[in-house]
């Protein structure tokens, strides 16, 4: 069990505050680091990877300090966003060099295994400079994985990948998370995060805007009415019944379905079924309409 922890961490460059008093814990499993462009995601990842000193606060990986502690890299792997690979090496040479630099007992076997995980065996003896962007990315993942780290940090891992490579990478991350590793990946593309992970850390303008399961985060946003799409045996009559409730702030009919804005999530969800039963209306579907990550995110960024 290796957790990555930031405790009251700030980082500034001159007058610019890149990360502002962030406290968060990334536990084993798959976590998305989400935020608009320029929000400070890369800075947070670099702080976690010990490549940047926090101006204030502490960063630890598995209880060990991340900054000025090369030994920490025995348990951590990093895939940076910047596509920095020595193009004159082949994938095998590159991953093997990583294995040797980690002083692994059997670097060749570790290299074979890492290249197998990312399915790069067929092209492993070609120079990296001849690879597509996705192949380079997978090669870098292999190099970051070669020492079997318990923590893997990936900065925008899906950038420049085609849909098939994306799917492959998502499966890979899921598999590694299921093995008990702590995996944090940053992204500004909501669909990617939504598909991959329920747990998110949302960074907006250098601050931690929210942390946890995004559906849970949504429910905690009590100042925003929750929107439900409901269909029933008699939508119009249900609408008249619901508008009489304190917990309902608005009702509308659109596309043959009823849209209900509930101001109080708990009271509304508890009362709905009882009200419908009392009025003799059969509910056929009740769907939360704004529990998508996109909605949650737009609420957070706008807040």
């Amino acid at each position: 069990m290796t957790a990555v922890e930031l405790d009251s961490v700030s980082r500034w460059y001159g007058n610019v505050v890149a990360v502002n008093d962030v406290t968060l814990t990334v536990n084993p499993g798959l976590t998305g680091l989400l935020g608009p462009n320029g929000a400070g995601k890369t800075t947070v990842l670099h702080l976690m990877a010990g490549l940047l000193a926090p101006s204030q606060g502490t960063v630890t990986v598995g209880g060990e300090a991340a900054w000025r502690n090369p030994d920490m890299y025995k348990q951590l792997g990093l895939v940076t966003e910047r596509e920095s690979v020595p193009g004159f090496l082949t994938a095998r040479e590159f991953v093997l060099a990583s294995a040797k630099l980690h002083k692994l007992p059997d670097p060749r076997a570790a290299t074979r295994a890492a290249l197998g995980i990312v399915e790069m065996e067929s092209a492993q003896d070609r120079e990296i400079s001849t690879y597509s962007k996705g192949m380079r990315q997978r090669t870098r993942v292999a190099a970051a994985l070669v020492h079997d780290p318990t923590v893997l940090l990936l900065d925008e891992p899906f950038n420049g990948m085609d849909p098939r490579q994306r799917m492959h990478m998502m499966e890979l991350l899921h598999r590694m998370a299921d093995e008990g590793r702590t995996i944090l990946f940053s992204s500004h593309i909501l669909e990617e995060v939504e598909q991959l992970s329920g747990t998110v850390q949302v960074i907006v303008s250098g601050r931690l805007a929210a942390s946890g399961d995004y559906r849970h985060i949504r429910r905690l946003m009590t100042n925003r009415p929750h929107v439900f799409t409901i269909s029933s045996s008699d939508d119009r009559r249900l609408a008249t019944v619901l508008i009489g409730q304190e917990s309902v702030s608005g009702v509308s009919m659109a596309d043959g379905a009823l849209q209900v804005h509930a101001s109080d999530y708990g009271t509304f969800t508890r009362a709905l079924a009882k009200l419908a039963k009392k009025s003799g209306i059969r509910l056929t579907s009740v769907l939360p309409a704004d529990e998508s990550l996109e909605k949650v995110f737009s609420y957070l960024v706008a807040a």
């Binding site: 990877a49 010990g50 490549l51 090369p70 030994d71 920490m72 890299y73 025995k74 951590l76 792997g77 990093l78 940076t80 910047r82 920095s84 690979v85 020595p86 990583s98 630099l101 980690h102 002083k103 190099a143 970051a144």
Partner: peptide, 11 residues
């Protein structure tokens, strides 16, 4: 930027 490969090793 390839320095990150070297810096992220326990050396």
């Amino acid at each position: 930027g390839t320095i990150t490969h070297l810096l992220t090793k326990p050396l």
